[in-house]
Design a binder for these strands. Structure first.
Length: 458
DNA sequence: ATCGGCTCGCGCAA
DNA sequence: TGCGCGAAGCCGAT
């Protein structure tokens, strides 16, 4: 467990406190949650009950109906499951400027210690970098996102082949269930009045009442919540695990897990998905190898990169060979040049690219394989490499349910050569790997995907 | 349909 | 110091 914990403030626990506070920033679940388990352990040790605080504010970048809905869809269930095990769960929806914003401080003033999620991007990364020193109590950040804790890798890894053997060596030690959360003292005080109780039928009205971007609608077909995540995993294991190795790069086969939004918002942990896949494969004489490679090796390579990159991501974070070759080709003539707005509206000359963008606009995800094509083409058709990066980050931050995630930024920078190797030199890309529409047509069912996305978006 | 070259640098064997 | 090989490819030769 120690490897999962970063002690960001080592003050002694407050005497005479009423509870230990778990500030839920990333892991929206009771099950397979090392951070919650660590908080419960500390509460038991201090002979105090445990309070879980989760908040959703109107004012973070790209807050919209899409993200608010996906988060609110999980709240009632998290409340039920937390309270069932004796944790005082309080969710707070800060809808607009006039709502109080000092609730975390107020909660912390009665807490013996704060335990929270260690997450290397976006809001949680900012909070955990800036806030620990402003409290006079212990502040622990616990990594419950990775199978092998991020802290086990002290340096920035160069590529999948450098991190893979390190992961394989330690896998047996960490591929064990996180264990049930057990609190010895139930939280018995009345729950505070400022909390927001969320009922499913009230979510549209709640979202409408927030001072956020109402022009990005909820995902057409991806619903938030723990039960939805469990259902998605079960469906994947029963129908697609056996097809995954062969068909994961064929988008129209729908053979991928579809777990990325649930992993990003913490409705499910990669550890429990990995354990479930391994056990299911064992019982049914299947091979889970390829799925586990993506779920563990490549995802944790992305967390390793996110830990070390600056914010926001820039081309300076690329390996030297990629920076140099891109610089040499910075002024190459582009065959097409589109603005951010043209990309956003899915109005390029390329029907496959537009279909990918439509899936992002309507569903909030792009198939993993096509996302690489999508990214390579933004590089090819942007005025500069820097502008291409800005466009990709903007479109993912604003529309992707699996955006703002280490995986997203790593996937975007992979398009510029991160974790990859050089290939044959050509215009605009230099020696960075190129992907062509011809290749996509040869290897995947482009037409059926384009037709499906046009139907969805109409 | 299949194959080799393209091109760089990490990590390990020696 | 040498060598094998890598986050999902392309292209031209056969």
């Amino acid at each position: 467990m120690e490897a999962r914990v970063r002690v960001l403030n080592a003050a002694p626990p407050r005497k005479g406190a009423r509870y230990v506070l778990y500030w839920l920033q990333a892991n929206r679940r009771v099950e397979s949650n090392h951070a919650l388990a660590a908080a419960a352990h500390l509460a038991n040790h201090l002979e105090l009950p445990l309070v879980c605080y989760e908040m959703l504010t109107y004012r973070y970048p790209y807050a919209s109906d899409r993200f608010h809905t996906f988060i609110l869809e999980g709240v009632a269930e998290t409340a039920r499951r937390m309270r069932a095990v004796g944790i005082g769960y309080c969710f707070y929806l800060r809808r607009r400027e006039s709502n109080p914003d000092d609730i975390p401080r107020d909660l912390a003033s009665h807490a013996a210690a704060i335990v929270t999620d260690d997450f290397p991007t976006f809001l949680a990364a900012g909070h955990n970098a800036a806030l620990p020193a402003t409290f006079d109590i212990p502040y622990h950040a616990v990594d419950s996102s990775c199978v092998i804790p991020m802290n086990c890798f002290d340096k920035r890894e160069y590529a999948a082949y450098t991190i893979r053997p390190k992961i394989k060596r330690q896998l047996a030690r960490y591929m064990i269930p996180a264990g049930q959360v057990r609190v010895e003292r139930r939280f018995k005080e009345p729950l505070p009045a400022w909390r927001t109780e969320v009922r499913a039928e009230e979510i549209p009205a709640l979202v409408a009442s927030c001072d956020i971007d109402h022009s990005v609608p909820p995902s057409l077909d991806i619903r938030g919540g723990r039960a939805a995540a469990e259902k998605r995993l079960r469906h994947f294991l029963e129908h697609n695990l056996r097809r995954y190795a062969l068909l994961r790069n064929e988008p129209s086969a729908k053979a991928t897990s579809g777990l990325s939004p649930y992993l990003h918002f913490g409705y499910i942990s990669s550890l429990e998905a990995a354990l479930a896949a391994r056990d299911y494969a064992e019982r049914h004489k299947l091979v889970a190898e390829e799925f586990l490679e993506e779920l563990i090796v490549r995802r944790e390579l992305a967390f390793n990169f996110a830990r070390h990159m600056r914010w926001p991501p820039t081309l300076d974070d690329l390996p030297e060979w990629a920076r140099k070759t891109l610089a040499r080709h910075s002024t190459d003539t582009r065959a097409y040049v589109y603005t951010r707005e043209q990309f956003e509206r899915a109005s390029t000359h390329d029907a496959l690219w537009n279909a990918c963008q439509k899936e992002l606009l309507v569903r909030g995800v792009i198939h993993g394989y096509y996302r690489m094509y999508w990214g390579k083409k933004v590089i090819e058709w942007s005025r500069t490499h820097e502008e291409a990066l800005e466009t990709m980050v903007y479109l993912h931050d604003r529309y992707a349910l699996d955006g703002r995630d280490p995986n997203t930024y790593t996937n975007i920078l992979w398009c510029f050569g991160l974790h990859d190797r050089p290939w044959q030199e050509r215009d605009v890309f230099g020696t960075v790997r190129y992907m062509s529409l011809e290749g996509m047509k040869r290897k995947t069912g482009v037409n059926s995907y384009v037709e499906a996305m046009n139907r969805l978006a109409s």
